[in-house]
Design a protein around this nucleic acid. Structure first.
Length: 479
RNA sequence: GCGCCCGUAGCUCAGCUGGAUAGAGCGUCGGCCUUCUAAGCCGAAUGUCGCAGGUUCGAAUCCUGCCGGGCGUGCCA
């Protein structure tokens, strides 16, 4: 408790350990909507970024925006066919999504669209200053600006935003490197690295039409990042469905004899599923009407639900809208980080909107109660620890035991790249302090006891705030 | 077909570097607001740990096979 209140490790920031980690997360694709599916990488990645920083690593969070690739040929064609400047300005994500969906639909009946799209990407990748590039530039910039909204709400930050297009002029060198190593072969007109006898399909570096593919860009990005950041470890926070891709990438690096190959890790995670009310089954990220669910709308709904609860539980609260925003957004983040990342997130609105039990609001509520006690006692956030009779806190064994788990929990979370360990830890702290407060009154206790209990309350609050802080969850003083 | 992942209470999960009566939340049932926020707390009921073998003094945990579900499987990302 002394260490907690004095902000010393392991409870305060850990000493630097001289290891540099680059974490690739969020990486939305501007050709596709920023929907709920992007939430996981964003939220897990930024939690890991803060976790690594807290534990003394040098961290570079990188947003590898999906702003390149043959799909942009499709987007360009879709834009030429159905693009509307006004609608784009109004709601860029929505409009780009609509024309993209329309493209997908119409391509089935109009095969010429596919040819035009391939040609459009070829022209884009030619490097010429042509119409394709102008459209791409405009759509890219508008999208990047639109991403700032969700990022601000979620409190997500990056050290670098370098899209795939950033590697446009670095891919040839990457391909050359693989060629020189003598591990590339030509197969069906494509340049590939094969893995004979390993049971995994070859990694394609250049398609038969001469254009590049995501593996090429990931490879170029890895070389660039090694040179730029000198990383010791590189984490990719990307869904499990891309496991094969990262395995191939890693195998290419190993065959190149790249020293850091070992420490390129795919931090994978499960899907977001919704309950199909008719079948009762969990299904992929679509509403009943078949629309993708936009992140902003989910956040808005959560905030609205919280706003209602505040109105009934605490109508006199100041800044109800601001608090509702904090709690609502946190509830979504917390829900995403609650279970092992490998598990699918089952998104159940009824459960989400009740905010009871092991949820974000539960932990925040504990924090608010603690803040309230400290406020009423008139002590500062971190009271002095001198002269406190620690022995009087024997009855707080559960809380103290939970607190002592902080270091091992952080260590395990780093080892396994598993933010859910912190989420579970915050629930344990909240639960134990909730229970303790029921039978152990603080303000009305004898002076010595009161002082000791206040220190406990303050320490629990500090620990809750820093744990939630790593997770990206706020800890309002009132709610 | 092949590869990877998952399978623990009605639901959602934790536990799985093997160790004593398998834990939590939701839901159900029953309690607690004239002292610090009831978004809380306390109690009760609920499990052949998918199935079958094996290793072990001891298996939810390790190994093998099978079943069920998911994801992936050469020019999308």
């Amino acid at each position: 408790m002394r260490a907690v209140l004095e902000d010393r490790p392991p409870f305060g920031p850990w000493p630097a350990r001289g290891e540099t980690v680059v974490i690739d997360y969020s990486s939305p694709n501007i050709a596709k909507p920023f929907h709920l599916g992007h939430l996981r990488s964003t939220v897990i990645g930024s939690a890991l970024r803060r976790l690594y920083k807290f534990t003394g690593h040098r961290v570079y969070g990188i947003n590898h925006i999906g702003d390149w690739g043959s799909q942009f040929g499709k987007i360009i064609v879709a834009w030429k066919e159905w693009g509307d400047e006004e609608r784009l300005a109004e709601n860029p994500m929505r409009h780009l999504f609509e024309i993209y969906v329309r493209y997908q639909k119409e391509e089935k009946d109009r095969p010429e669209l596919g040819k035009r799209a391939a040609e459009a990407f070829r022209r884009l990748e030619s490097g010429e200053d042509n119409e394709e590039r102008r459209i791409w530039t405009e759509l890219r910039e508008i999208s990047l600006r639109a991403f700032q909204g969700p990022y601000r709400r979620l409190g997500v930050e990056f050290e670098a935003v370098t899209g795939e297009s950033f590697y446009e002029d670095k891919m040839e060198a990457a391909i050359e490197r693989v060629r020189e190593a003598g591990i590339a072969t030509v197969s069906d007109g494509a340049l590939v690295v094969e893995f004979p006898g390993e049971g995994i399909p070859p990694c394609i570096l250049r398609k038969s039409d001469g254009t590049t593919i995501y593996a090429t860009r990931d490879l170029a990005a890895l070389f660039y990042r090694r040179e730029t950041y000198g990383f010791d470890r590189a984490l990719y926070v990307v869904g499990s469905e891309q496991k094969l891709h990262f395995r191939q990438l890693k195998r290419v690096l190993e065959r190149l004899g790249w020293p850091q190959a070992e420490r390129v890790e795919h931090v994978d995670f499960g899907l977001i599923l919704f309950r199909n009310e008719e079948t009762g089954r969990w299904e992929k990220g679509k509403t009943r009407s078949g629309n993708a669910i936009f992140l902003d709308e989910v956040l808005d709904q959560a905030v609205a639900g919280i706003r209602k609860i505040i109105e009934e539980k605490n109508p006199d609260l100041d800044d109800k809208d601001g608090i509702a925003e904090q709690i609502g957004v946190s509830a979504i983040i917390f829900n995403d980080l609650k279970n092992s990342r490998i598990k699918d997130v089952k998104f159940d609105w009824n459960e989400m909107l009740s905010f009871e039990g092991e949820t974000g609001p539960y932990v925040q509520y504990a924090g608010a109660r603690l803040a309230s006690i400290l406020r009423k006692a008139g002590v500062e956030e971190r009271p002095r620890v001198d002269g406190i009779s620690w022995g009087l806190l024997e009855d707080a064994a559960d809380v103290l035991l939970a607190m002592s788990e902080f270091r091992p929990v952080l260590e395990k979370a780093v080892l396994k790249n598993e933010p859910s360990l912190l989420t579970q830890f915050s629930i344990r702290i909240a639960g134990s302090i909730h229970s303790y407060l029921r039978d152990h009154h603080v303000l009305s206790a004898e002076p010595k006891l009161r002082e000791a209990r206040l220190a406990l309350v303050a320490a629990a609050r500090v620990l809750l705030v820093s744990t939630l802080g790593i997770l990206g969850v706020t800890a309002p003083e009132r709610m």
